[in-house]
């Protein structure tokens, strides 16, 4: 029962974020960038400005809706890149072993030794600021944990009878990896990816704060939060609502990941005989 509840809450929160992002142009009462009005700056929440206004007098509610687009893009795209890199390297290293395994393991350890934000900063420094380079930078930094999990899963799955049976039935190495190994390690990989989505949203905030991420005046939850820190005493709503948005979406991703892992488990899925 508890698991179902987690899955339902996770799916609900994630859906909420996706809907907010997709429907932002219709749901937002104001333009997140253009409707700046210094006369109505730092207004507390009321009937017109549901979440209040920020220092430039922009509607926080509208900016959060548009910010969902950026957070979702950053979370999903960077994790897709991470998972593809991590799984490809980890699975091949675990399966083939030998010098390739040594090389991948060495690279993984080097990546783990470099603080990920520093690495992302270095990539951003080369590529320049902006959303595409942010996605690439975050996509290149956090694959090492996925890689480790993929490698260790592959090592244990490799000795399972059905993988050996596939070899004796004439399957090629790639076919074995894709049909026998990958589906059986999707659970932990998925969980890593959803956890990573949360931390990617947070990294985006940090990079935006340093001026390397989303360029103002475009709204991202991270940059909204950093803008708000000067106003924490004066206008707490400017910080509270983006913070809440980050919290709820990260929670949603994590609960969804947990729930998916359990429902993907074939033992939970029974057909009528």
């Amino acid at each position: 029962m508890r698991l179902r509840f987690n899955l339902a809450l996770g799916a609900f929160l994630t859906t909420l974020v996706i809907l907010a992002g997709l429907l932002a142009p219709w749901l937002a009462p104001f333009d997140p960038v253009l409707d700046a009005d210094l006369m109505s700056s730092e207004l507390p929440p009321d009937g017109t400005f549901w979440f209040g206004t920020d220092a430039q007098g922009r509607d926080v509610y509208s900016r959060i809706l548009y910010g969902a687009q950026i957070s979702l893009t950053v979370g999903i795209v960077s994790q897709v890149i991470n998972s593809v890199i991590g799984v490809t390297l980890g699975m091949t290293a675990g399966y083939w072993g030998g010098w390739w395994d040594d090389l991948v393991s060495g690279l993984t350890n080097v990546m783990l030794a470099i603080p990920s934000l520093i690495f992302a900063l270095a990539v951003m420094a080369v590529l320049g600021p902006g959303l595409p380079s942010l996605l690439i930078a975050l996509g290149l930094t956090n694959w090492s944990w996925t890689c480790r999990i993929a490698r260790s899963s592959t090592l244990s799955l490799k000795s399972q009878g059905y993988v050996q049976a596939a070899q004796t039935l004439g399957y090629s190495d790639l076919r074995i990896m894709f049909t026998q190994i990958l589906p059986n390690m999707m659970g932990p990989i998925l969980v890593m990816a959803t956890l990573g989505m949360g931390s990617a949203v947070l990294s985006e905030a940090a990079l935006s704060f340093l001026g390397l991420g989303i360029q103002p005046p475009f709204p991202s939850w991270g940059s909204m939060l950093t803008d708000a820190q000067r106003l924490l005493q004066l206008a707490p709503w400017v910080a509270v609502f983006p913070g809440l948005a980050i919290f709820l979406s990260v929670l949603g991703f994590n609960l969804l990941g947990d729930g998916l892992r359990d429902s993907l488990d074939p033992h939970m899925r029974t057909r009528k005989p």
């Binding site: 059905y162 039935l169 589906p183 059986n184």
Partner: peptide
């Protein structure tokens, strides 16, 4: 012979019936 050619010559039945079938197929 390649893996494909060998497959028609020799096959194996494993000890542990729980580990020898892919749970996702």
């Amino acid at each position: 012979p390649t893996r494909m050619e060998r497959a028609k010559a020799v096959q194996i039945v494993f000890q542990d019936p729980y580990a020898s079938l892919n749970p996702r197929q």
